[in-house]
Design a protein around this nucleic acid. Structure first.
Lengths: 159, 159
DNA sequence: AAAGATTGACACGTCAATCTTA
DNA sequence: TAAGATTGACGTGTCAATCTTT
């Protein structure tokens, strides 16, 4: 309430604070932009799209839910809800796993694949517009480099 | 379903695809990590924290809701809900705006400020652990540079 | 007992509708 | 008519509880 910032202690340098504020804004707003485009054009959330894309790349268009959850960085619970919704829209199908009876397979349907293929150009255009149009080769390299570093820590659950 | 990826068309280069996949994973997981730490330690969402921090920096700890919404990159509706919750916890107070009777002011309370100050070290430590510990000076500059570029486009509503 | 998965209750963001003041 | 703000309904994610299979 006084003039200075006891709320953002100096344990971050000036540079780091500026970078952090920028990153937070991107974290807040880039997902919203992606959601809006996909929702509007294909009635899919970004996560729906991601799930369909991962299934389409799997052999047979099929993946166990636990494997899909790991690939998509999601909890099994979240994924189960999403698959339920996608199944109601006939974009995905649940199948019994032949090897293990406690496991469940998710398979992308023809309709799901068609939906994915139809929505891909618009989504990629949005990604290009929001991100890559603005970046040169060095920027792209730097982005991957920084994100990779951050991901190594995110794989660590605890602090 | 076939062997190759009709779902991620080649309109992104190889480099861009790699960078994009990394960024998506960060977008999915970094917010989750921040939420968990703040929720666990202070029962605050990251957005709650952000709102309290912005208020604490304002003169008098007070800001109009519309100004706060703009600063926090949020809709007025979202902000109103959040302020309602924070008000119920006595971390924030709503006040009549003296100048304009249609406006509402939000003021951080002593208790809100205390909560913010108490939770700041843990939050900053998390940010440091998840992000800045891993980055050297060049990385930090690059991060800010890239995020700034992306933000210029995010300020454009339409495509 | 642990792994795989499902379900229901709860919390939060969005959207549309609404109300008041300018 | 528009700006500022609020509210309620709806969709989605999280968490804990539960069930089955290993």
């Amino acid at each position: 309430v006084t003039s200075d910032d006891e709320n953002l202690p100096s344990w971050l340098t000036e540079d780091e604070q500026r970078a952090w504020r920028c990153l937070v804004r991107v974290l807040l707003r880039l997902p919203v932009a992606l959601e809006q485009q996909l929702k509007h054009d294909a009635d899919l959330s970004h996560f729906d799209y991601w799930v369909l894309a991962l299934l389409s790349e799997a052999t047979g268009g099929t993946l166990r839910l636990s494997a899909l959850a790991a690939d998509a960085d999601a909890s099994l619970s979240r994924l189960s809800h999403v698959v339920t919704r996608l199944e109601q829209r006939r974009l995905v199908q649940r199948l019994q796993c032949p090897d293990e009876r406690r496991a469940t397979l998710a398979k992308i349907t023809d309709e799901g694949l068609a939906t994915l293929v139809a929505s891909a150009p618009g989504h990629v255009a949005e990604v290009r517009y929001r991100v890559f149009d603005l970046l040169d080769g060095n920027d792209v390299d730097a982005l991957e480099h920084v994100c990779s570093k951050i991901l190594t820590r995110l794989d660590n659950p605890a602090e």
